[in-house]
Design a binder for these strands. Structure first.
Lengths: 246, 246
DNA sequence: AAGTGGTCTAGACCACAAC
DNA sequence: TTGTGGTCTAGACCACTTA
């Protein structure tokens, strides 16, 4: 008869803290007891307490401020930002975001020539390694309070035989007006994924520990059901929700 | 003149490993060097190596198999499951998912009476604390390979004066047929969020460490723009993407 | 039996923030 | 100056997997 494994001490501490956070014993925004006092309370040493807290930090339940203490985060309430997703084709021919946000590039994005990696090539229905124009930038809105990483990809093959064969096309959304002038009628599809950020992404988006990103791929479908361009968004996963009308 | 702070050893190790994972030195699916050998290689003790690896685990880059070793995960390629989001109103009056998946409840869900928490009440446009019918279940599809946590919420106020005043309404999607019979013409909006799972959610969805969840709220809008019901989905964030046509 | 990761101790010293 | 968290050592012993 297999004996029950004892729960590790650090997990008991983590469970205690998580339960307290979820039931309001440790209210959001308030500090947790110090590592030292938790160590004493549970009869363990500090490294053991830190292992427990590391779990909660990785789950976005606790935020640590250097020299100040450990504070309860609240991934509970409704996100304060709701972004309706969509592309509007204005009467003047321009394309704008359905959420009405006006983004500005932190630095001017430059066109680079890249080879389509497999996951992008798949969605663009081109062979992996086919050359593309790629723009990448960190964008901000609402006086820097909103941030997103933005990329535009256009396969060279889409631009063959157009004036953009010699001349770099603009990034989205201006790209869409350009493609429309070339005769395309555009249709858009978005693919939503999530993942934890790499360190540079976390820094660029100002993400606290334990907060995942939303990763949105927007494919522009042109004539003949042909994918002609792609936008890529990396969005902070806390305090933000995307809205789609079905 | 502020001197440059030295990077902690554990972070140097984490950076080395992450870089190796991203550039292919440590290929996906392959084991990393053992903790012992990394400790020797970097001239540190095991706990220091473990701190480095803990970071990569929390970011979903490394998966550890007890007694076997540490293995490289690949959060890189395209997810193998794409779920087109939408609700179809069939000719026979039933409602089905646009992705065509057929979900089965792990256990029969029961109707419980709950008080609307603030974030749900907000979306349903009812006062917080107003009573609702709530169904919750763990659902599986594709012979248990796909999993999702599903919940249906219906405010009592929506059912006042109908036959469901005495009798519990069915959960979605049957709920939608029932609401249609009551005279509602339904429209759907989805809100997509992401967050790290709680331990019970991670277990139910079989989520590896460092993998976030997608959290989808689907609001059914009835007559007079009135929200009449809500579905809630918790989906595994790895190897899955949602698809929306704009 | 050998190799792997999992848990934990008992310290030490440092860096940062608030008083 | 005091209290907080951050880094690191040098072990010990355990649990799990494979051979």
């Amino acid at each position: 008869m297999p004996a029950k494994k004892t729960t590790p001490k650090y997990r008991q501490i983590a469970d205690h803290l998580r339960e307290g956070i979820l039931n309001g014993t440790y209210p959001a925004g308030q500090p947790l007891p110090s590592e030292e006092s938790l160590a004493e309370q549970f009869g363990v040493t500090r490294p053991t307490v830190r292992q427990a807290v590391a779990e909660l930090r990785a789950n976005g339940l606790v935020e640590v401020l250097m020299g100040r203490g450990m504070f309860v985060r609240s991934p509970h309430g409704r996100p304060s930002i709701t972004r309706p997703r969509g592309v509007r084709h204005e009467l003047d021919g321009r394309f704008t975001e359905a959420d009405g946000l006006r983004w500005t590039d932190a630095e001017e994005p430059v066109a680079t020539r890249t080879d389509a990696p497999l996951p992008l090539a798949d969605l663009l229905r081109i062979p992996p390694g086919e050359p593309m124009y790629t723009y990448q930038s960190l964008q901000t809105a609402d006086r820097g309070r909103l941030r997103q990483l933005h990329a535009t990809h256009v396969p060279f093959s889409v631009l063959l035989g157009t004036k953009y064969e010699d001349q770099a096309p603009p990034p989205a959304p201006h790209l869409y007006a350009a493609l429309t002038e070339l005769g395309h009628v555009l249709d858009f599809t978005e693919y939503v994924r999530t993942r934890m950020p790499l360190p540079d992404q976390a820094q660029a988006l100002r993400l606290p520990e334990g907060v995942p990103m939303l990763h949105v791929l927007r494919i522009a479908i042109g004539n003949d059901e042909r994918p002609v361009a792609m936008e890529e968004f990396h969005l902070p996963g806390d305090d933000l929700e995307l809205m789609y009308r079905l």
